[in-house]
């Protein structure tokens, strides 16, 4: 197991992503952050509070559960359904930024786009991921990436966040081959 991102690394990455989101969207007025449970939801919260600090305004932040929209439900054990909370401002004509911890096959994001389509029609949908580990199976790419981690498919990337796990760390488990 090797540590890829330490707690300060994660903090710096999220701060940079926050600035990039503001730069790309020319401010915070139209953005809605939607975190994908479990860890993406906490990351979205953190980015929202960093942006509020920078801009001095409240940021719309919610969660978007994608379990019911997965394409592998027939193949795998059912997952517990997590809450979806859409901020009162809604997503209609807003710039929605999906936030997840690890971007891998891209299937979670495809499901998220389907889930989002049921809720409304945002002006744009963007994607922020703490880690991009490659091996995409769909034509999906992130707009904001904390760190690109080259991995082999047999490895797994483990993200720990203090809200759930007591500390912040990203590590790679297993041997590269």
């Amino acid at each position: 197991m090797s540590v890829a991102l330490s707690a300060p690394d994660i903090k710096r990455a999220l701060t940079r992503i926050s600035h990039e989101i503001l730069e790309k969207n020319q401010g915070a007025s139209s953005i809605v952050l939607l975190g994908i449970p479990t860890r993406g939801a906490h990351l979205a919260q953190r980015i929202a509070s960093i942006i509020s600090e920078i801009e001095g305004v409240e940021i719309s932040c919610g969660t978007l559960d994608i379990t019911l929209f997965r394409d592998d439900l027939r193949l795998r054990a059912p997952k517990a359904i997590m809450p979806t909370t859409i901020p009162p401002s809604g997503v209609e004509n807003r710039d929605v930024i999906l936030v997840d911890d690890v971007l891998f096959s891209g299937r979670t994001i495809r499901s998220a786009l389907d889930a989002l389509g049921e809720i409304g029609r945002p002006r744009t949908v963007q994607l922020a991921a703490l880690v991009d580990r490659g091996h995409r199976e769909l034509p999906i790419k992130a707009d904001f990436v904390g760190k690109n981690l080259p991995t082999s498919k047999s490895q797994s990337v483990r993200v720990l966040l203090s809200e759930i796990d007591g500390r912040d760390e990203v590590s790679i488990e297993g041997e590269a081959n």
Binding site: R74, A77, P78, M82, T108
Partner: peptide
Amino acid sequence: LYVLLTGGSLEAGGN
């Protein structure tokens, strides 16, 4: 129906 028709037993955790 969700639990019965999506193979296997229910496990905790999202995503």
